[in-house]
Structures are given as structure tokens and as C-alpha cells.
Design a protein around this nucleic acid. Structure first.
Lengths: 142, 142
DNA sequence: TTGCCTCCTGTAGTAGCTACAGGATCAAGA
DNA sequence: TCTTGATCCTGTAGCTACTACAGGAGGCAA
């Protein structure tokens, strides 16, 4: 069973932001949206993040880097939190995400092709008769 | 000099939305953000879109399809509106956009590769010891 | 005239943050 | 001990590019 490793004492929010590379306010945002648990507080109300909190943030940041949405991460975390997730469930979420990434790549490559095509027709001169503008203006509406 | 073609009488917003495939509210949004000029109105205040308005919307929609941001489209349109744009300026905007699309593709392909790698390590079974979770949890913070 | 559809305006919600205001707390130096 | 400046707290507004809704007015056919 995967667990978040524990080994160092608490950090305040600013220090956690620095070490994780995450924006200060984003940490609070992840708390309000429920991705991060509410951390312990000092008597004065300052947040103190345990090693478990730090690992959880790292998990979130890594998942975001890989393009998972907040809701997808919420699903991943809730499976882990419940404790009895199967590897198959995690795999399904991941491959679904992979498919949407692949689709996005395909879309962007079409787009890239089109942009190359229309910009290659352009003489780049001072002539104000522009094939790019013509291409963008396109045919009249039906 | 490129111009927007004119040939049919005015349309109301709903009709324009239907023909252009653009959402009804989006048309108003483009007006408030200044991409579309304020159209003529009937006595009762209903918007009436001329052929020029329709061409302009088509230009915007096509540019959005190609992934230009609203600000990029604003630049393109203001060059056209000023009337004395050079084809070189348009070409520059387009190739800048093309570069950002290409960068995005490169980023997504790395991401796709990583997702494939981590999900291929997974046995997909009921075993709750998941290499994907391990990969996402990653190494401890510095 | 009744009913229904479209139109109008202003405003709020979406994702995923980021930034700011106005106040409290902390830690180090004089 | 006092002061100064950094950091913390909360709540709220802003960003992009839309989309949706509420509540009211106009248009048109039976």
C-alpha cells in the first residue's frame, strides 16, 4: 500500500511555498477546494504543514504538471484516501487522461499544419493584400 | 486590400448565432470586449447585424478555431481596421502564434510519453500497491 | 387577446489559479 | 523593551473566454 513518507517537522506556508515551488496563495487555494487537508495551526493561527501534508502537496503538483485536472486529482486522492483502491482504478483514470492528451496533440497538429499553410502563402512584404487575412475571413456564411 | 464582403440584409442576434454556429451570448460578449462593433438597432433596441458585421464575426470565429487568443485577434483586427497594415505585420503575428502552438505540442508530447511510461508499469490488478501513485508521489522535497 | 418566442440588460458562474487590502504576529536588532 | 520589517491571517477581486440565468419588454400568429 502506497503511503506518504514522513520524516521532517512542520513548515509554515511561506517555507512550504519556497521548497515546493508552489505559489503561496495556491497552497491556500488547494486547501479551500479540499485537495489539501486543513493543516495544524500554531496558537496564533498560523498554518503548520507536516511531512504528510508536504507529500500530499507534492503529489498534487506532480499531477498538475502531468495535466490532470483538479477534479481528476481529487478522484486520485480520494481513492488513495479511502485506502482500498485497486491499481486498476488508478490505471483507468490515468489512461483516460492519456487519451485526452493524445486528442489534444492531434488537434494542435492539425492546427499547426493549417497555420503553416496559410502563413507560407504570404509574401511578408509591404503589399497590403494579405492572403492570411483572406484565409481568416473565409467564405461567406451559409 | 482585403475587405469584408457585403451582400445580404441584416440579421438579429439569434439568427446570426444559428448561421454562424456561435453561441448567442458569445456574440454579445465579443461586442462588450470590443471585437465586434456595436451593430445597428431597431427602434425597439434589437440588434441588427449587417453583412460586414457577419464577416467580422466569421473572421473572429475562424481565428479562434486556429487558437488565436482574443488579444491576438484584437491585434489582427486593429491592423485591418487601420487600413494600412502590411502583410509583414500579419505574418509576424501568425508565426508567433504558430511557434506557441508548436511549443504546446512539444510539451504535450513529453507529457504523453511520461503518462505512457508510468501507466505501462502498472499491472492493473486488484493489488493496492500502485506504481502510478508512487510515480505521482515522487521523491521527497529538498 | 392570449400565448409563446425572441430579444434586452445586468450579473454570476466555470477552471485554476493569482493578487491585493487591511490587519495580526513573529523575530531580530538597538 | 521597543521598533521595524517580514511573514502570516482573512476575505475578496481579478484573469481568460465564455456560458447561463433572471426578470422584463417586444414581436407575431391564432
Amino acid at each position: 500500500m502506497t503511503e506518504f513518507t514522513v520524516s521532517r517537522a512542520g513548515l509554515k506556508r511561506g517555507e512550504l511555498a519556497k521548497r515546493s515551488g508552489c505559489n503561496l496563495e495556491t497552497i491556500r487555494y488547494y486547501e479551500t477546494t479540499g485537495l489539501l487537508h486543513e493543516p495544524a495551526r500554531t496558537d496564533a493561527g498560523h498554518r503548520v504543514y507536516s511531512e504528510v501534508d508536504q507529500s500530499r502537496l507534492r503529489f498534487i503538483l506532480r499531477s498538475r504538471e502531468l495535466g490532470f485536472t483538479i477534479e481528476e486529482i481529487r478522484s486520485l486522492l480520494s481513492l488513495v484516501d479511502d485506502g482500498d483502491y485497486s491499481c486498476g482504478e488508478i490505471h483507468t483514470l490515468t489512461t483516460n487522461h492519456l487519451q485526452s492528451v493524445s486528442r489534444k496533440i492531434a488537434d494542435l497538429r492539425k492546427l499547426e499544419r493549417t497555420l503553416k499553410d496559410i502563413s507560407s502563402e504570404c509574401a511578408k512584404g509591404n503589399d497590403p493584400d494579405c492572403p492570411i487575412i483572406d484565409a481568416l475571413a473565409g467564405p461567406a456564411m451559409k
